[in-house]
Amino acid sequence: MNEAIVTTNGLTFSYTRRTTPALDQLTIAIAAGTVTAIIGPAGAGKSTLCALLAGFMPQFFRGVVGGTATVDGVSPIDGSVHAMLPHVTVVLSQASTQISGVCDTVSGEVGFALANMGVPVDTIRTRVATALATMEISHLAERSPFQLSGGQQQRMVIAAALALNPPVLIFDEPTAQLDPPTVAALGDTMRRLAATGKTIIVAEQHLDWVAAYADRVIVLNAGRLHADGPPQTIIADPPNWRSGGRMPSDYRAMHSSMMCGRARP
């Protein structure tokens, strides 16, 4: 088992003007070089956890943070999003909303964050070329980001995250806008990245995708840790889904389909 690179201890977060906490006494440790899926119903706290680990709370999303969290040895609570970028970054669900609009080419878009961080030009060019090659979109380098398909835009956005070269990459519902072949390709990419030592955290709704690509599943419900383990164990163990009727019925339906579903490649 690799050393934990992401840890939370009694982590609690309450958004301003909300009575119930979005995260409630969450204690987890995620090992480096793994793909960890975070699942749970809408409002379970998946996106809040992703945003908090990336440094969005409490500066960007106002609220009260309790407990501690570390990512690559740094607390995201004490810093800002850009200060956390060398350690962790997030790929949001909609690729189209993540295009800056200021760059006329895909390569410019992929290097935009590095340029904002003041990284030297030669380093930017090298990292952009590597990220584009990793995502297999080098041939699109000079195209306009707005002329790409949804799947290509998603690859470009992931390449932009890879160019930052953080050890931890978080994906917040990355399959929401993608067609099945692109979803499968995305899973393969994540496995490849994990094999190179990157730690991948994915907030995801699709259990079949989770079962196929994740090493570990963390189930959140109402901001609390509900279950934690390998995907086969989590999905196959009915108590994880029959939690006093608190899990929505669509998850139970997904579970049923999973039980006769596909195996991990």
């Binding site: 960007f60 999003v81 970028l85 997030v90 993540q98 964050a113």
Partner: peptide
């Protein structure tokens, strides 16, 4: 959020 993540 995306612009924050691009170190803007």
């Amino acid at each position: 959020m995306a612009l924050e993540l691009r170190a803007f």
